[in-house]
Simulated scan of single mutants.
Amino acid sequence: MKIHIKNLFLGSLLFIQAVFSYGVEDKQLLSIFNKYNVNGTLVISSTDGKKVYIHNESRAKKNYLPASTFKIPNTLIGLAEGAINPDGHVFLWDGKDKGWKIWNQNHTLQSALSNSCIWCYQEVAQDVGRLQYRYHLKKMNYGNRELGNLTTFWLDGKLRINAYQQIEFLKKLYSERLPYYKKYQKKTKKIMLNESNPSYKLYGKTGWVMKNGKGIDIGWYVGFLEKDNQTWFFAINIDLMKDSQRKLRKQIIKEALHVKRII
């Protein structure tokens, strides 16, 4: 009986710690944001959610346009709808200036994602269509599931998502629990690879919500890291007061993973 009561107490204590850990400001993460004098939020979570590190929880619950982080679900949607060929898709450049030098060329699916090729995914959007997007956003329960202009709704439309939702979506994708063929989920994860070395593999996608001079730009970086048979998920968004701060999205993530001794 004593053992039973002890186990019950320990179980309850662990449950309470797990629940309340979500609302605790991580001082080490706070120091990184203070170091760079940027306003934003960061959530890092283990696969099972038992270890969660948070900076600025109230902002982590705030919804923003996903910008190019939407290229992750958009890839999956494109594959499912046949708008993207899983066996070697090529986006053919029409020879017109697309606004950025790296975009002015043909792209594979890998390069389109890594270089945030807007016109590439606008072609996907045209093929998918508004009706099917509504279906897929509901099917994968992505953000607030709202649309806008067919070819720019993730950039300037009504679609919104927060840091917690980004991580929840990534966890489902990683474990291949989204309602899509596993081969499409595997393909989507594969092209997200940003960095690979003997110690770890880092997967992710950046996003840049541009206000066109009105208000403040928002920078995203979401993804996951594999190390020693463990996987950690992360989502950061920060206010971008100047273009040079865009590099801080990845830089803060790397420093945060180091300070939490994950890498």
Rank of each mutant, 00 (worst) to 15 (best):
K201M: 13
L155T: 04
K171S: 08
D97Q: 08
W220H: 03
K96D: 04
E57C: 00
M210R: 15
V24I: 11
M1T: 14
L13A: 10
T75Q: 03
T47A: 12
Y174E: 08
H136M: 03
M210C: 02
K201R: 15
V19R: 10
L10K: 14
R130H: 14
S58D: 02
G207D: 00
A256M: 07
Y180P: 12
K98Y: 09
F33I: 00
F233H: 10
W100K: 13
L137G: 06
Y221N: 02
D26E: 03
L240R: 04
Y164E: 02
K186F: 15
Y36V: 00
N141C: 13
K247T: 09
K205V: 04
I102Q: 14
K250C: 00
M210T: 09
K186A: 12
T231A: 05
N162L: 03
A112T: 07
Q132A: 01
I218K: 08
D97M: 06
G148H: 15
K247I: 08
K189E: 07
I77K: 10
N34F: 04
I54C: 06
I263S: 13
D26W: 06
M241S: 10
T75Y: 08
I218N: 02
L131V: 08
L79E: 08
Q132W: 10
F33S: 00
Q185E: 11
I263R: 15
V124C: 03
G204M: 07
I3L: 14
V222F: 10
K139Y: 13
D243Y: 13
I77W: 11
S31H: 11
T47M: 12
R177Q: 15
L257K: 07
T75A: 02
Y135T: 05
I5G: 09
L79M: 07
L30Y: 07
V38Q: 01
Q105A: 13
W93K: 10
N74K: 08
T231K: 11
T188N: 09
S116H: 08
Y53A: 00
S21H: 15
R145C: 05
N85M: 04
N37K: 13
Q17D: 04
E226A: 05
K183M: 09
F15D: 00
R177W: 11
G88W: 12
T152Q: 14
P198A: 01
I218M: 01
I16G: 05
K214T: 07
E81M: 04
Y64A: 00
L240Q: 01
K139G: 09
L76Q: 10
E25Q: 14
G148A: 05
R160L: 13
L113K: 07
D87Q: 14
F234L: 02
W119C: 02
K189N: 11
F233E: 04
A256K: 09
Y174M: 05
H55V: 00
E25T: 11
D243T: 11
K171T: 08
P86A: 00
L240G: 01
H89T: 02
T206S: 11
F9I: 09
N34W: 05
K50R: 12
L225E: 03
I5T: 15
H89L: 01
E25S: 09
K182P: 14
Y174V: 05
D243W: 12
I236A: 01
I252N: 03
L202M: 13
N162F: 07
G223F: 10
L30W: 09
S12N: 12
H136F: 14
W103K: 04
K214R: 13
K211D: 03
R160N: 10
M192W: 15
